[in-house]
Amino acid sequence: MTSPVTAPAATVSASPRPPSPKRRAGPSGPYLVYLVPGLVLFVGVILLPFLMNLGISFTRWHGVGTPEWTGLDNYDRLFSDTTFWASFRNNLAVILAMAIIPTMIGLVLGAALFDYVAKRFGAGTASGLRASYYLPQVLPIPVAGIVWGWFLNPSYGALNASLEKLGLGGLAQDWLGDPSFALSSVMVVMVWIQIGFPVVIFMSGLQRVDPALYEAAEIDGASWWRRFWHVTIPQIRPEIYVVLLWTTIASLKVFAHIYVLTKGGPGGATNVPAYYSYQNFFEKTQVGYGAAIATALTVVIVVLTVLFLRVQDTGDEEAR
């Protein structure tokens, strides 16, 4: 269905009555009824709670009694809170582990499967490999947490046992309990969970690339890496933006990974803002401060989303 065909049909058929100035608003009026359930639910579950959270962030409140208005005190505290900034730095590591590294690996894997394995070993081999990379993505995070929590356990886990077997017992560590290893261990788990997502998106993106581009590059004698840089990456640029935006937002919201693997520990070594706000809400019952952290996180995510969409727009224009 192409738009040049539908557009005239629409203008002809949509006006059985003589057109009047009110026509545009006229027929759309009754449709508003269909928005009512969605909007009512939206206001009750998203908008109102969000505004309440914003309000709470300007108060001191322990969840019971009347919140005490304190203006910007919570935000003042936020700026000088070293725990918060440490959690923010950890979140940058999480972005690396959940967005940047998986996107880079996913690009190479997606291109290798699409432009190499599928052509030389058949599409079945490629989709079988893709499914293996994707499998961790379907697991609920707590289940992945149990698997890895056991795998990395210092006393009965499989990793240290394997190291002993190989005579490398000296390398055994308390992977999740030692502050100098915990963050890196969590990052490895995140990469394992995350790789499948970009691979699947990039492979489906590559399907709409004109095969003639690859053939032309091959005839010109371009190596696989040159094709990767000059055909694959420019052609699936929209997918790369989407994956990066999506996974970066997911990294900023990360909670379950931390809860099941380390609970932010040891000594805050793996804490992130989302988990820190949860601690303030439900463990320390410093609700006002928790709300301020959550609001700050929201601002970062919204700004990032807008920025990304801007960059994507200009990127598209340059490509044209």
Binding site: I46, F255, T298, T305
Partner: peptide
């Protein structure tokens, strides 16, 4: 925007309500 919102920014009011 609702879709990109972190759930932490809704959780306490939802819990309270």
């Amino acid at each position: 925007l609702a879709f990109t919102l972190p759930q932490e920014a809704l959780v306490y009011p939802l819990y309270y309500l």
